[in-house]
Nucleic acid binder design. Structure first.
Lengths: 228, 228
DNA sequence: TTCCCTATATGATCTGGATCATACGGACCC
DNA sequence: GGGTCCGTATGATCCAGATCATATAGGGAA
């Protein structure tokens, strides 16, 4: 397993600049684990024993709101460290992480993580960068919660398109199947409202639902909507 | 100036654990500057040349929304580093920082900041901790934006009380003068709504406005409201 | 003093979207 | 086959709070 783990590490931006020795010692303590769609990686309130680094697939970090509603705090993709803050702060996971599709990730125990941090300064630098990026992203999420729901949904699809959109002859394809509920959790609205907008868009508008994802047929219209 | 700067550094949590030598080299590059209430420390879009560390007083970080409305992203107090992310990422300030009262802070130029980061690993560790704390705080801000406006306002006052409330015989006193507009910017509502709630609370409710701040007369009632 | 500007205050509307209700197709299981 | 989920869909109703409008009390500046 160790050899393929080293290969995996070599492909992740976070670890690409490490020396071979660093990567080897990291591979020693990292274990490759897989999850199916909908499976929790960890659950809100659990003691944070492990840090996870996404290798393939996407995951959501959700926080259960007091009224029972869920709120999606972040979407993670390959190379992102999930649960890093909880592990670093030695607090229980403040939110749950759930696989949005079949994923694989590296699991690193807290104790190993801290040992690595002490012995590999370059790793600390990489983590610092990752954290500042997440701070910027979270700030944007805060700002994004303003305006009409339709604008927020439009902005969400523009962001998804930027992150993982693939040009096809029919338009921009987003290969990520999100339920209307998940769209609602991402934009801070209710299922009914997200369904209403999505079905209207499906008829006349700029985004179609496809099996396994979405298709943006009119990016320009989406940009106009995102401002309103 | 350097001597008093070292004294100042010794009192900030972020730098308390540094060696005397570390502090001396930091004091060499830090300059103590003052701002009056309402004065911008830096402005959104400006190139991020300097990092600021608040020594006394409070400041707000605001982002101008497209519709002209302002949004307060964070409140900073003594010991907090303002503009750290922009400086570290070498991007223009993504938001403005404005003094909420007469403040003083240390200004450190980007180049000096990076030089310090390289030569003083303990400093990097301290910054890492500060960043994770801010991540947690920002996440809470995201979650806090749910529920009725009155609940959000109640939660805001409970947080302010926890941060800087002082017990008096009449109740918990918050020595920070925020305008109704700033309360609105913090809770994501309009001036009119924040004025309505504050004047109702002033008559019958749990929070009174005083010169120079607020007085919480019924913390229990505020906690009840914060859940609604 | 008068003028102007800002913060606070309060009333009168209007509406986006939450809430409640009902319905329908598909997947899975017994 | 007939249940029982779950995701999607759509209509009907309702209300918190945005918006618009107007008013009053300081606080400077001239």
């Amino acid at each position: 397993m160790t050899d393929s783990t080293i290969d995996t590490l070599r492909r992740l931006p976070l670890f690409r600049r490490l020396s071979e020795g660093d990567r080897a010692s990291l591979a020693d303590v990292a274990e490759l684990v897989a999850f199916v769609r909908g499976q929790p990686i960890f659950t809100e309130g659990d003691p944070s024993r492990d840090l996870f680094i996404l290798v393939s697939g996407r995951a959501k970090v959700v926080k259960a709101m007091p009224e029972g509603r869920d709120m999606i705090l972040e979407l993670f993709g390959p190379g992102d460290a999930v649960g890093a803050v909880a592990v670093y702060e030695e607090i229980p996971y403040p939110a749950s992480a759930v696989a949005l599709e079949p994923i694989s990730c590296l699991r690193i125990a807290r104790t190993d993580f801290f040992r690595l941090l002490e012995t590999r300064p370059t790793l600390a630098r990489g983590i610092l960068t990752a954290l500042t990026h997440r701070l910027v992203a979270l700030t944007n999420r805060l700002v994004d919660r303003n305006g009409r729901v339709e604008s927020r949904l439009a902005r969400l699809f523009l962001k998804l398109a930027g992150d993982l959109g693939a040009r096809t002859d029919e338009g921009l394809h987003i290969p990520l199947a999100l339920t209307r509920q998940e769209l609602a959790d991402l934009t801070g609205t209710t299922v009914e409202t997200s369904i209403r907008i999505m079905s209207r868009w499906g008829r006349e508008g700029p985004v179609q639902s496809t099996e396994g994802g979405f298709l943006i047929t009119d990016r320009r219209a989406l940009e106009t909507l995102s401002l309103g």
